[in-house]
């Protein structure tokens, strides 16, 4: 896990994914492959469906059509083609880790217990084992001194770093980031992006929805551009940012630069 994975194993496979909210199509026949160890960033203007796409991957949103496989296991629908029972769904979900725009820490638990809660009560780890792992992760995200603090005493950047540690504690096969820096004050964005960059260097498979262009260019193996629910461009970052094939992306990048 800690070396850049060069295998061609598929971590996430999305096929023909469609989703509507109240008759408005937010995702239209989306196909996406994410290989193990890859960092994929999803760009697009707001309302383009990128958060919905991410939230479909761990079934926080249920797509209308299409399929999603995580490490070869289909999520949300069982072999008989029926909706998955909640326990089974929870097991597949646990193979992904998610970081939310608004952190979503549990305010009644201190930082350490936010991180150990799911490993103990979902994975069945012992308290000692979970805490030892949690302290390692806190070290990694630079939050060790705050292990005993409660979420309401932390800054946004600190909360998000704890949220990243919480997701990592489940040892997920793929990390999902839903605009992880959009709710942060500008001066706090850097500390969170730095942590995510470190994770990419360690070979984690990650799908990141973001507005941070420089970050996307620096960490991505693949950049995906969504427009009105369609993937209109999918390329390596060099091509995407210097020589996009569509007019829509060219305009988007111009606007971001100005």
């Amino acid at each position: 896990m800690f070396e850049k994975n060069t295998s061609e194993q598929t971590a996430v496979s999305i096929r023909h994914l469609s989703k509507s909210f109240d008759g408005v199509e937010v995702l239209r026949d989306v196909d996406l492959e994410v290989r193990e160890g890859d960092v994929v960033t999803i760009l697009g203007s707001s309302g383009s469906g990128k958060s919905t796409l991410l939230r479909c991957i761990n079934w926080l949103e249920q797509p209308d059509r299409g399929s999603i496989h995580i490490g070869g296991q289909r999520i949300g629908v069982n072999d008989a083609g029926r909706p998955m029972p909640v326990r089974e769904l929870a097991k597949v979900r646990a193979r992904t880790g998610m970081v939310f725009q608004s952190f979503n820490l549990w305010p009644h638990l201190n930082v350490l217990h936010n991180i150990t809660e799911a490993p103990i009560h979902v994975l069945g780890k012992s308290k000692a084992e979970a805490e030892a792992h949690a302290r390692e992760l806190l070290e990694k995200v630079g939050m060790s001194p705050k292990a005993d603090a409660y979420p309401n005493t932390l800054s946004g950047g600190q909360k998000q770093r704890v949220a990243i540690a919480r997701a990592l504690a489940m040892q997920p096969e793929v990390m999902l980031f839903d605009e992880p820096t959009s709710a942060l004050d500008p001066e706090l964005v850097g500390e969170v992006l730095a942590v995510i960059k470190d994770l990419s260097a360690e070979g984690y498979t990650m799908i990141v929805v973001t507005h941070e262009m420089a970050f996307s260019r620096a960490v991505s193996d693949k950049v995906v551009f969504l427009d009105k629910g369609l993937i209109i461009e999918q390329a390596d970052p060099e091509t995407f940012f210097t020589n996009p094939s569509t007019e829509r992306v060219r305009k988007f990048l111009e606007r971001e630069e100005s």
């Binding site: 926080l60 909640v86 929870a90 939310f100 979503n104 009644h108 809660e117 799911a118």
Partner: peptide, 22 residues
């Protein structure tokens, strides 16, 4: 909070564990 429940689900908690622990 819906956000907190989503965080619990994303961490693989079943509805019962979410209710009891969160």
């Amino acid at each position: 909070s819906r956000e907190q429940r989503e965080a619990a689900m994303a961490n693989g908690m079943t509805p019962w564990v979410t209710f009891r622990r969160i």
